[in-house]
Design a protein around this nucleic acid. Structure first.
Lengths: 240, 240
DNA sequence: GGCGAAGTTTGCGGTGGCACAAACTTCTCA
DNA sequence: TGAGAAGTTTGTGCCACCGCAAACTTCGCC
């Protein structure tokens, strides 16, 4: 975590003007907010904060992707969530906590803003729509986690992996020729940590799907070529 | 859902004065709140609201237990959460939703207060500490769900069931002679829906544990007689 | 008190996917 | 350009757990 935090004077207001928690604000207010922010550029695989650490700052992901994960006592990793750019994260304060509930690691190169947690209450009080939009995001994440619980409880490995892929291309997909590619580097291991299985099983599945023309993949890159058939694959335990 | 809603004039202020979201309020304020509330007494196994329905009211559980569940397209049930008395539930508005994200069913006889959702914003704005305490509860539930995801991803059935039992006696346990009993009727089927397994497996496990003197159970009732040994049983995938 | 419904126990066979292992491919960096 | 690291593929054996089935127990109700 090389701490090259820096307050750049040249952050443009347009950076935040279209991002939900700030979209209802005036230019002047966004200026205020940006002037308080630190900005950092991080490489792939860098921890932003660790589970259990005092929640001293909260973050906005301007570009890139964040992986939220937890590590068990026996050292196994479980990936809870992926966060796409334009979202706040590390907002422990919003759920009444003063330590981070999970570890955040960059899944790709990323640019993040951050503020000291003490300005949180100010933000909530002063900026109209900030709280509402924040809680909407929280609600979405809660819903996603809920869906994952249902999936893990009712679905076979094959369906869970299919679901995970579909979720990834929905949230972080990028159109390329011949399909939709997941927009950040992702390994079989990562996918297995998202779906509660082993990298071996994920590898076998992807190989099989590649033969059937559902996906195509290279090292750390996966492209879904036939999303529709993948959807058919994962019916059988999906929430209403 | 027999709608015997009724606004009783005799609800006592002391009902809410020690309940977190309202504990910082003056007697006068609690009076206001109670005067807006409807109160209902429900039998066991009654749905309070259903997933997907418009979130027209929010609820406070005064007595009893609530089971939060989801039903898949194939009809399987997954129990997401148990809510003990003294907590708000059905607070879709707090996470920016206008439909309920899950179904709530009484796990025992229960007494619930409810208010129309349109007063939610008033409550948040007018009553000090209401929002904060609410979000703390939300944070706890989020953390619990998070733990369940980690458990399901990393633990064996035996450990998951042990964990589920421990969580239940922590939240809803009642001291009885010879151990701690889960304070509401719970079947093997319920436990299996909480731990993503089958009632058969749960039954076998409980039988084995009963022989070892860890638990004792009757129809719809489970008592943990040796919590400590049960804790040892479930180490091996527990979050830090 | 007796009948049906609901809940529980137990046996048995089959299998999905994990553990272990080893070779191969692709990147990175000196 | 070559060595090592990181990531991927594939094969084999095995067992924890599920699915199915059937009997048994307990409860509530007429």
């Amino acid at each position: 975590m090389s701490d090259t935090a820096k307050t750049l004077p040249r952050l443009d207001e347009s950076l935040l003007s279209h991002v939900p928690p700030f979209s209802k604000l005036e230019k002047r207010q966004i200026r205020e907010i940006l002037d308080m922010a630190s900005v950092r550029r991080l490489g792939e695989g860098v921890a932003v904060f660790e589970e259990g650490a005092p929640a001293e700052r909260f973050y906005m992901l301007l570009d890139g992707y964040i992986r939220v994960m937890r590590i068990t006592a026996t050292g196994e990793q479980v990936i809870a969530l992926h966060i796409p750019s334009g979202q706040l994260f590390g907002i422990a304060r919003a759920i009444g906590r003063d330590t981070y509930p999970a570890t955040s690691v960059t899944a790709s190169e990323a640019i993040i803003l951050s503020w000291p947690m003490r300005v949180w209450d100010d933000f909530v009080a002063r900026y109209d729509g900030f709280a509402t939009e924040t809680y909407k995001t929280l609600g979405q994440r809660l819903g996603e986690m809920n869906n994952r619980i249902v999936e893990m409880a009712t679905q076979q490995v094959e369906q869970r992996v299919a679901n995970a892929l579909l979720r990834l291309i929905n949230q972080t997909g990028r159109k390329v020729e011949g399909g939709i590619e997941i927009d950040f580097p992702i390994t079989r291991q990562d996918l297995s940590e998202m779906t509660a299985t082993t990298l071996h099983t994920v590898s076998r599945l992807l190989s099989a799907w590649e033969k059937q023309g559902l996906v195509s993949s290279r090292r750390k890159r996966i492209t879904v070529t036939d999303p529709h058939r993948l959807v058919l694959m994962c019916r059988g335990g999906v929430p209403i």
